[in-house]
């Protein structure tokens, strides 16, 4: 059995792992929010045939384990379609879609929280669909959505730790490596957990700042 003490270089390893985790998190968040928003808009406009498909897919994504989704994407899709997929690609695809499913639900209820009456008013005053979306729906839906979205994203940050299983060198994978080398699981996993905690806290704090700013600029006593 070869094992060794912690070295200063481990800090660099941890930072690299954190970097991979954050990059993947940020990337999948941006993609996921964009897709979620698109789905909510398509859903809102009742584009024929789209509603049931969107609801079915997002329901499936929300109600099945992310790890299973990850295996399906990483092992299942390449086998089925005879294509190659790197762990990072599979991780990006899976987490993005998963985030999209949760974001869709938030954006949809943000849109639905808006009184139909206002939209009717905007219509009779001659605003077209995209103007109504931009001036009436979006600002109110955004203020409504930020809080729940931050909650979801804090959770998705934790979920990214699953991608270590398919071999992405994220923070958790680095933890695994350090653990195997040092055989100090208590210290390793406590440190890894603390790093996740600090990242999540920072995210939550930033989120509540954004929310406060949005609500101030949208400033309405309604919700």
């Amino acid at each position: 059995m070869r094992y060794a003490d912690f070295t200063p270089y481990d800090i660099v390893l941890l930072l690299q792992g954190l970097g991979v985790t954050l990059a993947l998190f940020i990337g999948t968040t941006l993609i996921g929010l964009a897709i979620g928003l698109l789905l909510a808009v398509v859903h809102h406009y009742r584009i024929p045939g789209c509603r049931p498909v969107i609801v079915l897919v997002t329901e499936a994504l929300k109600n099945s384990p992310v790890l299973v989704q990850l295996f399906l994407v990483f092992f299942g899709i390449p086998a089925f379609l005879h294509i190659r997929m790197t762990p990072v690609e599979a991780a990006t695809l899976t987490i993005s879609l998963n985030t999209a499913a949760f974001a869709f639900v938030v954006f949809r209820s943000g849109i639905e929280s808006i009184d139909r009456d206002q939209i009717e008013a905007a219509k009779v005053f001659g605003l077209d669909r995209s103007q109504i979306l931009r001036f009436v729906i979006a600002p109110q839906a955004a203020a409504f959505s930020v809080g729940p979205l931050v909650g979801i994203l804090v959770n998705q940050l934790q979920v990214t730790s699953l991608i270590s299983v398919i071999g992405v060198f994220d923070l958790t994978k680095i933890g695994n490596i350090l653990n195997l080398r040092t055989l100090q699981p208590f210290i390793v996993w406590a440190v890894i957990g603390l790093i996740y905690y600090l990242a999540a806290k920072t995210l939550a704090l930033a989120g509540s700042r954004v929310e406060a700013a949005l609500r101030k600029s949208v400033k309405w006593g309604g919700i």
């Binding site: 009456d117 009717e120 008013a121 009779v124 005053f125 001659g126 009436v136 109110q140 309604g222």
Partner: peptide
Amino acid sequence: ARRASATVFQLFNLYPH
């Protein structure tokens, strides 16, 4: 037609934001 007319609503239907 909508440019020629304008509506006032029972429940005002103002944009709250």
